[in-house]
Nucleic acid binder design. Structure first.
Lengths: 164, 164
DNA sequence: TCTATCGTTTAAAACGTTCTAAACGATAAT
DNA sequence: ATTATCGTTTAGAACGTTTTAAACGATAGA
C-alpha cells in the first residue's frame, strides 16, 4: 500500500502509543484506536493484524475494550462475513468521556478513602491516650484539606464539561 | 506505637497507593508522600523503612524523586546526623503542580506529533497518486479536529489554574 | 456432512518496571 | 586511626502486565 504515507502514519501511531503510555493506559489500545480513526474505511481483524503486526488475540481483546468505551463499533460490510471495525469519528467526545469517567471515579475513591479513615479513627476512640487524641485532631485537619481539594476538583470537572 | 491508629493509617496508605497506581504513577512514591504528609514530625530514612517495610534503597530513590517535585524536603534535626524528611503541607499545591506539569507536557507532545505528521506527509507529496491526495486531505481534516481538542484542553487548563 | 473461515479463549512466554540486598563511599564519633 | 553510622548506588530478583501462539467453538459454504 501507500508506502511513504504508511511510514508517516506508523510514526504517528507510535507517538500516540507513547503518549497513552505516559498516561498510564495501554499503549496498544490507543494505537488501535488511532489506526481505525485515521482509516477512511472500516477495517477487519486481519487488516489490523497486518497493519499493527500484532496477534489476532491481542487485537480481538482490545477491540472489545474499545467497544466498551464506545470508541469503536462493529459495522457490517456487504458481501463479507468478517467483522469490520470503525472508530467513532468524534474523537473529542471519546476522549472527554474516558477522562471524565476516570476523574469522576477517582474523586469518588478519595471521598470513600477519607470516610473510611475517619470511621476507623472514630471506632478506636475508646482506648485513646491524650497523645493519640492530639494526633487524631491533626489528622482531621489534614483530611479536611484533602476533602476541600477533592470538591474543588469536582467543581472544576463540571466546569470543564460545560466547556466541552 | 499507636496500634489501632497505625492500622487505620495503613489502610489509608494502601488506598492512596491504589489510587496513584490507577493514575499510572508509582504506587509507592504516593504512599511515601502520604506517610510524610500525615506525620506530625519529620521522619528519618530508618523510620520510613520501618513504617513502610521497604528497603532503604527504594525509599532513598523515591524520596529524591519527591524532592524533585518539591513535595518533600530535607530538614535538619538538632542532635542527629540523620536526614529527616518532611512533606510540603500544601497538598493542593503539590498535586496541582504535578498535574499541571503533566498535562502541559502532553499538550505539547500532541502538537509536536501533529506537526511532525504533517511534515512527513508534505515531504512525500511529490510522488502521490490522486488516491493518495484524497487520503491526505482526509488526514488533514482529522488532524484539525485533534488540534482543536488540544487547544481546548489548553484553555481548560489555564481556566483550572485560575480556579486553584 | 464435511471443510474452510472466522473471532475468542487460554496457558505460557516475553517484557518492562519496581524492589531488594549487598556493597560502597562519606562522614562523624571514639 | 579505627570503627560505626549514615545515604546512595547497582546488579539482579521478583513481580505484574501485555502479548503471543495455538487450540477451540461457531458459523457459513460446498
Amino acid at each position: 500500500m501507500h508506502n511513504k504515507l504508511e511510514m508517516a502514519q506508523d510514526k504517528f501511531i507510535a507517538s500516540i502509543g507513547e503518549l497513552a503510555g505516559s498516561f498510564g493506559l495501554n499503549q496498544f489500545i490507543a494505537q488501535l484506536y488511532a489506526v481505525l480513526y485515521l482509516s477512511d474505511k472500516p477495517l477487519s481483524l486481519d487488516e489490523l493484524v497486518e497493519r499493527l503486526r500484532a496477534s489476532k488475540g491481542n487485537i480481538s481483546l482490545n477491540i472489545r475494550e474499545l467497544e466498551k468505551w464506545g470508541a469503536v463499533k462493529n459495522v457490517w460490510v456487504k458481501g463479507s462475513r468478517k467483522d469490520y471495525y470503525e472508530a467513532d469519528p468524534d474523537i473529542r467526545k471519546v476522549a472527554a468521556n474516558k477522562l471524565k469517567a476516570g476523574i469522576h471515579k477517582r474523586i469518588g475513591q478519595v471521598s470513600d478513602m477519607i470516610e473510611e479513615f475517619k470511621e476507623l479513627i472514630h471506632s478506636s476512640e475508646g482506648d485513646m491516650t491524650e497523645e493519640d487524641k492530639k494526633i487524631v485532631k491533626a489528622y482531621h485537619e489534614k483530611l479536611k484539606k484533602i476533602e476541600d481539594m477533592n470538591s474543588l476538583a469536582s467543581k472544576a470537572l463540571s466546569l470543564a464539561e460545560k466547556l466541552f
